[in-house]
């Protein structure tokens, strides 16, 4: 279970002013849930994922985590640009106590980076980084995955594989996916939430969440 209690977060802007992003978010995400969090651009979706993952801290409020949680997937975060994809896999294996050889092999198979797997990550395209990030997190086998829509969007062969892998994981892992598109969320999630004006509203029924999102 992940429990958010009255989370507040704002960021300082250049020039001294600040922008309030989250103003009192409370929510409970239970084991095995697949929740689609809908919000417009700038609504604070990425901020929410960063706080849940623990890479940033809320200004007020508490986050209780009772399962292992991935880093937010979809961006190039959580890897090293100076070292190769394979070295990243070794590093992740050491950190998360996974067998090194198998992890390197799994990531190589899943991410399909070809020769680039042995090249520094900074030479990758953004799509390749997304693939590597997802492959690394699947290798760790988290109890909860934090997903940005870019992981599951797209119509390439690889996007299909990502979707298949995530659907497969959904059977045993919790998933929180942020998106501004109802369709992406519908493919993965069983319940929904809408992030608007710094507040999060949960809906047991996904269609209700989507209707509220479109109405807002």
């Amino acid at each position: 279970m992940i429990r958010l209690e009255n989370i507040h977060k704002s960021y300082k802007l250049h020039g001294g002013s600040s922008k309030v992003v989250l103003r009192g978010v409370s929510a409970v995400f239970g084991k095995g849930e697949a929740v689609g969090i809908l919000g417009r651009n700038g609504a604070g979706k990425s901020t929410l994922l960063r706080l849940i993952s623990g890479v940033e801290f809320p200004e007020a409020g508490h986050i209780r985590r009772e399962m292992s949680i991935s880093w937010p997937l979809g961006h190039a975060a959580a890897m090293h640009y100076a070292i190769s994809g394979a070295d990243n896999a070794r590093f992740i294996a050491r950190i998360y106590e996974k067998p090194i050889a198998e992890t390197v092999e799994f990531v190589e198979d899943f991410a399909e980076l070809g020769q680039y797997y042995r090249q520094p990550v900074r030479t990758y395209s953004s799509g390749m980084m997304t693939r590597l990030g997802l492959a690394l997190s699947l290798a760790v086998d988290f109890e909860c995955y934090l997903l940005d829509e870019v992981v599951a969007a797209g119509d390439s062969r690889f996007a299909d594989r990502c979707r298949a892998a995530l659907l497969d994981r959904r059977a045993r892992s919790t998933m929180l996916m942020v998106s501004h598109q109802a369709e992406t969320v519908r493919a993965f999630c069983t319940s929904g939430a809408v992030l608007k004006d710094g507040r999060l509203t949960r809906y047991e029924d996904l269609d209700q969440a989507i209707a509220a999102y479109h109405a807002g």
Partner: peptide, 9 residues
């Protein structure tokens, strides 16, 4: 910074 995405670090 990117290391801090791993909460163990």
């Amino acid at each position: 910074q990117s290391l801090l995405y791993h909460r163990r670090i």
